[in-house]
Design a protein around this nucleic acid. Structure first.
Lengths: 226, 226
DNA sequence: TTATAATTTTAGGGTATCCTAAAACTTTTG
DNA sequence: CAAAAGTTTTAGGATACCCTAAAATTATAA
């Protein structure tokens, strides 16, 4: 038996879903899969045929679906990758469960063995050594919530922040102040043209378009977050 | 300008490659891409047409290829994901540069924004606080090199280890000893049948097939690693 | 400067995903 | 138990990738 069996990300999703459905209710039916994976029934049929061809599932038309031993092993591997990633995101990176699970779902097909092993070890290490570890990790969590000082021109659409300083004199400085760009004012970046010029922001309820040159003069504290 | 532009993993690879080639030598040609991405020239033509359609590159048949501003921004985002992942793998997970780069290459298309931001923060945090951090991280590195005690039946093909104990009496115990399964003997797992029965190992230069029942009685120290 | 070499595109195929609509089959129910 | 309802498969179509081989174009070199 060749051990280097590998299937597409899509088929991994199917086999993972089958694994979970079988765990819940003995056997899976195409309907369950279509619902869970949000695809049309006919797509499921195609996927099932491919999995059956690779001897990972027991499948005959109109019959229930179960995993072969090889399929179960494969599914367990996928589930392991998923859970290891999720655990790492939750325990180490302090991401909330739901977001962590979704992220794991997206990445589970591309993590390499080496990285996965290290991530598992890391999460394990954090659990095993709560003394220095917890302190250190809570330091990280705090660091995560810290906001970052940067130039307004470096922000991206969707970013929010507060103005911390306006470093411009003369005409530009005057114009910025006229527009209400003063210390302490919260704002949000709406859009940014291809080269960052102009950059459109929402401030005090108004929409404002700034030249790149102007935005570069404004120091802001970027709100941390998604 | 809609900001939620997203292209396939494959096209992200193309645009990333174009970015690097342009950085090196002003403009890219299909040939460079074909070579770098190890695909046929005709595949490149197709990819270029799709990228041009999405206004990410400047492309006319037989002419050189450059990035549009939007394309450059997109490429920079991909490169950022790649580098952030690689840095994290190297600085935090203590993976060697080459392996880290390869792993990043595989994962850069599926990391979510939230996770990426956290990974960046983590690597940043590790750098910023060398005091507790370095100690703690070196503790992790040590933990990584530690070997693990487990049952031989839990190993996978490719795993190597050393026998630490044989917990079987009677017939099975005798058979195991007869086969040379004694404390301190190094071995390697070659293959494993679907249900883990039998499991084939290489030991003292011989090939041996063990029943699952037998493999469960053997405690081993698994060599850490790839 | 034209013949040869190299590059690039077109033409035509193959696979994996997905879809909708219609046909085949099962299950439920009056 | 047969008709209605629900499920599953087949049929046929679309897109994104990739390929090889041949045609078109550009570059090089005698």
């Amino acid at each position: 038996m060749t051990d280097a069996m590998h299937i597409s990300a899509s088929l991994e999703d199917y086999i993972e879903a089958i694994f979970h459905i079988v765990a819940e209710k003995q056997a899976a039916k195409p309907r369950d899969l279509a619902e869970r994976m949000k695809v049309a029934g006919s797509s499921v049929t195609g996927a099932l045929r491919m999995l059956a061809e690779k001897a990972l599932i027991n499948y005959t038309p109109y019959d229930i679906i179960t995993l072969t031993p090889a399929g179960k092993a494969y599914a367990e591997d996928v589930v392991h990758r998923h859970e290891a990633l999720r655990d790492f995101f939750v325990k180490v990176l302090a991401v909330d469960y739901k977001a962590a699970d979704e992220a794991a779902c997206g990445m589970e097909h591309s993590v390499s063995k080496v990285i996965l092993e290290r991530l598992v070890r890391f999460a394990e290490f954090v659990e095993v050594r709560p003394r220095g570890g917890e302190d250190w990790l809570s330091g990280f969590r705090h660091h995560c919530e810290r906001n970052t000082i940067m130039k307004m021109s470096e922000l991206k659409p969707g970013d929010k922040g507060v103005i911390t300083a306006v470093a411009a004199q003369g005409e530009i400085g005057q114009r910025l102040v006229d527009m209400g760009m003063v210390k302490g004012t919260p704002f949000k970046v709406l859009r940014k043209a291809p080269l960052g010029d102009p950059i459109e922001i929402q401030i005090r309820g108004f929409l404002l378009a700034l030249r790149k040159q102007e935005a570069e003069c404004v120091s802001v504290e970027k709100k941390a977050g998604k």
